[in-house]
Design a binder for these strands. Sequence first.
RNA 1: GCCCUCAUCGUCUAGAGGUUAGGACAUGGGACUUUCAAUCCCAGAACAGGGGUUCAAUUCCCCUUGAGGGUACCA
Length: 459
Amino acid sequence: MIESKPVRVRFAPSPTGYLHVGGARTAIYNYLFAKAAGATFYLRIEDTDRKRYNEDALNDLLRDLKWLGLDWDEGPYFQSERLEIYGKAAQQLIDSGKAYYCFCTEERLQTLEHGYDRHCRDLPLDEAQKRIEAGEKFVIRFKSPPDGITKFNDLIRGEIETPNKDLDDLVLLKRDKFPTYHLASVVDDHYMQTSHVLRGDEWISSTPKHVLLYNAFGWEVPFFCHLPVILAPGGGKLSKRKGAASVGDFRDLGYLPHALVNFLSLLGWSPGDDREVMSLEEMIKAFSLERIHPKAVAFDEKKLEWMNGMHIRLLPDSFFAEELKKLYPNETDEGKFLKVAALLKPRLKFTNELLAMSKYFFERPEKCEDGKAYAKYWTEQSPEHIGLVSKELEKIEDFNIKNIEAAFMKVCEDSEVKLGSLAQPVRLAISGVGAGPGLWEILECLGKDECIFRLRRVN
RNA sequence: GCCCUCAUCGUCUAGAGGUUAGGACAUGGGACUUUCAAUCCCAGAACAGGGGUUCAAUUCCCCUUGAGGGUACCA
């Protein structure tokens, strides 16, 4: 085994758009890997493209990462603040003859069919210097070796070899003096002592060029691990058009951050046993790069929904009681929050359903007009039965579930109607909606007086 | 075009040179039941195709096909 430097990883997004789930998963794997190794996870902002830079995107990114709970230990470092470092690095390669100035215009480049033709590669340095002094614009290109083979070991794919003849002379420093991704990421990963580069697999093709760059600088090459892409359910790119695609979308939809993290972590990785619903600690403990597999994966929102439900049910009732408290600041009965939370939690799929589902516990629903809404239930019995129920409920001294149920049973027996066709109209009268927790529980929670008030409104 | 990567139920996955190919989501059915959920039980459902290697391949190798990526002074 190669002696390796201490583990140190980073998430290095480009602030050009919202944080999509693919980027989030890259961050998650870096995070899990770092925590599993007791190592540092730092954040680096790759803002070297001035045209696509977007300040809102940056703010969203930071917010979304925090929301997911992926706290970084260091950073964020901004590449735009490190221009001098990249300039020096590029100069270093010029000096050692491993890079060169290129004066080709955009127009000339566009006439080329198969990439750059190395037109300026052999320009004498002093001539280049003169042209620069004369004010000519230039870029700095890497002098890629013309032959030989470049290898690197991808931690989940094994060895990948590329003939150097397939590699082009990539631009290191752009016309605007900003570095390209290739230069900036190599320089930063070196100086920031990154041990493992976990990034999207769109970088596989560029990695040999990066390896060559490390070599040209005489730097140690980090470990590479390229993560497969996340595809839309039917295949193809995940996009807003095909549904939610960004972390923000899922937050707005009412997903729990941890459910998203858990689900995303399982897209391309598994702990090796049958566990799926896991805490962060469990994930960290079970995580290893070897168990990431290389296949592109489809995003199945149905399973995310299920997982969200599982995590909702894992949360204590008090969590939802607190949420309810925020929703109904005027409610004075503190105990009611916990009661309602307990009733609603098992049937919650999204956290933002809480408001709609809890409304009738805290606010009287609109009065239903003369039983019209109940029409379909009036087949077996009539609105008078509602009155019978309220009379029976009124007699109860200790208004608890047991006694409430007994009251209903009595009405059923006395008037020979089925419980089903009695309970449902009462539910509508009480809650205004046809679905929800057990009726006895609802009634008990609302209290005798309120129940009778609501029932009386019906007839 | 050229280069690279990938391929187990519809989806996420486990798996090993010899397994009844396991689990989860989804689907269908059932139980529970005052509704809707939740929960529990059952069922159907996969090794892309073709060549090798081998006593034996879904597993190792090659090809094809399909999917994805790269081929930017974007990342």
